[in-house]
Computed example of a mutant assay.
Amino acid sequence: MSDFLQSYGFLIVTLIQAGLLGLSLYFPLMAGQLSLASPGFYALGGYVAAIMLTNPAFAGLRDALGNGIFPLTWLAAGLLCALAGVIVGVPALRLRGIYLALATIAFVEILRVVSLNLAITGGAIGIFGIPQAFGFQDRWQYILIFGPLLALVLAFTYMLQKSRVGRAFRAIREDELAADAMGVPPTQYKVLAFVIGAVIAGIVGSMSAPFLNTWNAKQGTFDASIAILAFVLIGGSRSMWGPVVGGALLTAVPELLRFLQDWRLVINGLVLVIASLYLPQGIVGALGKLRKSPPPARPPVAPAPDAKGGTL
Rank of each mutant, 00 (worst) to 15 (best):
residue 117 N to P: 09
residue 247 G to E: 00
residue 276 S to F: 14
residue 55 N to S: 11
residue 177 L to H: 06
residue 259 F to G: 02
residue 23 L to W: 07
residue 26 Y to S: 02
residue 246 G to A: 12
residue 247 G to M: 05
residue 61 L to N: 15
residue 74 W to V: 12
residue 45 G to K: 04
residue 198 A to Y: 06
residue 209 A to T: 09
residue 257 L to D: 00
residue 173 R to H: 06
residue 175 D to R: 12
residue 197 G to F: 07
residue 12 I to P: 02
residue 101 A to L: 09
residue 60 G to I: 14
residue 104 T to K: 11
residue 231 F to R: 08
residue 32 G to Y: 04
residue 296 P to K: 11
residue 306 D to H: 12
residue 86 V to Q: 03
residue 19 G to W: 05
residue 300 P to Y: 11
residue 127 I to Q: 02
residue 277 L to D: 03
residue 136 F to D: 00
residue 298 R to Y: 15
residue 232 V to G: 01
residue 242 G to W: 09
residue 35 S to T: 15
residue 199 V to R: 01
residue 265 L to E: 01
residue 187 T to N: 02
residue 74 W to T: 13
residue 62 R to T: 04
residue 129 G to N: 04
residue 84 A to W: 06
residue 307 A to P: 00
residue 19 G to A: 09
residue 231 F to C: 08
residue 227 A to P: 10
residue 233 L to I: 07
residue 188 Q to R: 15
residue 155 A to T: 11
residue 271 V to H: 01
residue 39 P to H: 01
residue 35 S to R: 12
residue 199 V to Q: 00
residue 282 G to Q: 05
residue 93 L to E: 03
residue 73 T to C: 14
residue 15 L to H: 05
residue 310 G to P: 04
residue 39 P to Q: 03
residue 267 I to E: 01
residue 243 P to R: 01
residue 136 F to C: 02
residue 41 F to D: 10
residue 270 L to C: 15
residue 169 F to L: 06
residue 77 A to G: 08
residue 95 L to F: 10
residue 70 F to W: 04
residue 225 S to F: 03
residue 10 F to Q: 06
residue 275 A to L: 13
residue 170 R to E: 10
residue 132 Q to V: 13
residue 294 P to L: 04
residue 55 N to Q: 10
residue 265 L to G: 00
residue 51 I to Q: 05
residue 195 V to K: 02
residue 275 A to I: 14
residue 208 S to E: 04
residue 286 A to M: 06
residue 70 F to Q: 06
residue 310 G to L: 07
residue 71 P to R: 10
residue 205 G to D: 00
residue 129 G to T: 06
residue 249 L to Y: 03
residue 170 R to P: 07
residue 37 A to D: 10
residue 248 A to C: 10
residue 199 V to M: 05
residue 162 K to P: 06
residue 266 V to I: 13
residue 19 G to P: 04
residue 194 F to Q: 00
residue 289 K to Y: 12
residue 290 L to I: 09
residue 242 G to C: 11
residue 285 G to E: 04
residue 18 A to L: 12
residue 103 A to C: 08
residue 279 L to Y: 12
residue 243 P to Y: 05
residue 4 F to R: 01
residue 271 V to S: 02
residue 236 G to L: 08
residue 233 L to Y: 04
residue 277 L to T: 13
residue 234 I to C: 08
residue 23 L to M: 09
residue 32 G to R: 02
residue 27 F to Q: 01
residue 253 V to R: 12
residue 186 P to M: 08
residue 57 A to G: 07
residue 83 L to W: 06
residue 49 A to W: 12
residue 152 L to W: 15
residue 163 S to C: 07
residue 50 A to T: 14
residue 135 G to M: 09
residue 77 A to F: 11
residue 107 F to Q: 01
residue 198 A to W: 07
residue 154 L to C: 13
residue 78 G to T: 02
residue 207 M to C: 13
residue 241 W to K: 07
residue 79 L to N: 07
residue 119 A to P: 09
residue 205 G to E: 00
residue 67 N to H: 10
residue 261 Q to W: 10
residue 164 R to D: 00
residue 128 F to Q: 12
residue 55 N to L: 08
residue 200 I to Y: 02
residue 280 P to A: 15
residue 164 R to Q: 05
residue 211 F to S: 03
residue 191 V to P: 08
residue 193 A to S: 14
residue 235 G to E: 03
residue 35 S to G: 05
residue 148 P to V: 14
residue 285 G to N: 07
residue 174 E to C: 10
residue 45 G to I: 00
